[in-house]
Design a protein around this nucleic acid. Sequence first.
DNA 1: GTTTTTATGTCAGTCATGTTGACTTAATTC
DNA 2: GAATTAAGTCAACATGACTGACATAAAAAC
Lengths: 181, 181
Amino acid sequence: MTDIKTAANPLFLREEELRQGIEMLFFAYRDFTSEPDRILAEYDFGRAHHRVIYFVGRNPGLAVSELLDVLQITKQSLSRVLGQLVREGIVEQKPGTEDRRRRHLHLTTRGYELERRLTESQAARFARAYRAAGAEAVEGFRTVMQGLINERDRGRFDKRAGERAAVKAATGKPAARGRRD
Amino acid sequence: MTDIKTAANPLFLREEELRQGIEMLFFAYRDFTSEPDRILAEYDFGRAHHRVIYFVGRNPGLAVSELLDVLQITKQSLSRVLGQLVREGIVEQKPGTEDRRRRHLHLTTRGYELERRLTESQAARFARAYRAAGAEAVEGFRTVMQGLINERDRGRFDKRAGERAAVKAATGKPAARGRRD
DNA sequence: GTTTTTATGTCAGTCATGTTGACTTAATTC
DNA sequence: GAATTAAGTCAACATGACTGACATAAAAAC
C-alpha cells in the first residue's frame, strides 16, 4: 500500500509545513501574552488595557480615533477600558491645541512605569529568541511576519528604525475597515 | 543637545527592534484570526470552537484531557464549546477501548469540511508569506518562533515532518501547568 | 451664519469566552 | 474495597467584545 504521507510527497510536506506555521503562531501568541497577563492582574487590568497602554506609550499624543484604528475595536469597547485607565491615573487626555475636539493620550509617570514592566517582559522574550536565533534568522523572521500581516499595516515595519511615528506610518491610505461607529 | 535616539545608539536600536517584534506578533495574530472569524460566524461559532476543531482535526482520537492540555483552559470552558460542537455534528466522541473512561475526539465529515475551510484560509496566508520570503527566511522564522514559545511546547516543531502525532510529541515531560480542575 | 460633519463620549443590552468552586459518575488502579 | 482518574455538570461571575441610539462640542462646508 502506498503511503501518501511519505517525505517524498511534496504536497504533504507543504501541508505539514503550513500547519506547523499555524501552530507556531498560536503557541507563540499564547505564551507571549501569558506573562503580561500576570502583571496586569495585580492592577485588575486585562489584555485590553495592555494594548491601550502599549500603543499610547509607543505613540505619545495619540488621538482616540487613531487608537481605535490600530486596535480595530469599537469606541464603546475602548471607552470602558480607557475610562478605567484614566481614572486609575495611568493615561492622561489632553485636548488638542489645533483641533480641540481631539483628545491626545499620554501615559502618566505611573502609567509609564507599568508600561515598562509589561514591555520589558515581552521584550525579554524577544531578546532571548533573537539572540538564540542569530541576526540572519531574525531577518527571515521579520520578512515572514510582514508577509503575514495585512498590507494595511505592513508599512509600520519598513526600514525605519524608529525615526517616524509608529502609528502615523500607516495612516496614508484609509484602507477599508470593518464597520465601526 | 545630544539625541539619544540616533542610529548610532545600539541600546536604542535594540529597544526599537524588540518593540517591532512585539508589534509584528500583535498585528500578525490579529490578521491571522480575522478570516476564520468570518467563516465561523456563518456557523455561529467563535474562536474557541476554531481551536477545538483545529486540534481535533490535527490529532484525530485526541482525548479530552489532552485537548485541555493544549488549549490551557479549564474543562468547564471547554465543555460548553465542545458540547456545542458535538450537538452540531462537528465533533464525535468515542469511548476508548483500552481505557473506557477516556473519550476520543474525531471530526465528523461535516466537521472535516469546516476544518478544511478554516485551515485553508490560514494556510493560504502562510503559503503567501513563505513564498514571498523564500526558504531561508522561512528557516529563520521557524527558529525565532520556536524561541518565542515556552520550552514546554517547543518540541512540537522539531524536525519531524508529520510522522509523529502532533500532540503526543510534547507530552513526554509533564511540565508544570497552571492549576486546573 | 446656519448646516453638516467629525471627534468623542455615553447609556443600555447582548454575547462569547474565560474563571472558581462544588459535586457526580464511571472506570481504573492500588 | 478504597482511592484515583477522566469526564462532565451546575451555578455564579468577570472580561472584553458587539450593536444601536443618542449627546456634545468643535470644525468644516455651504
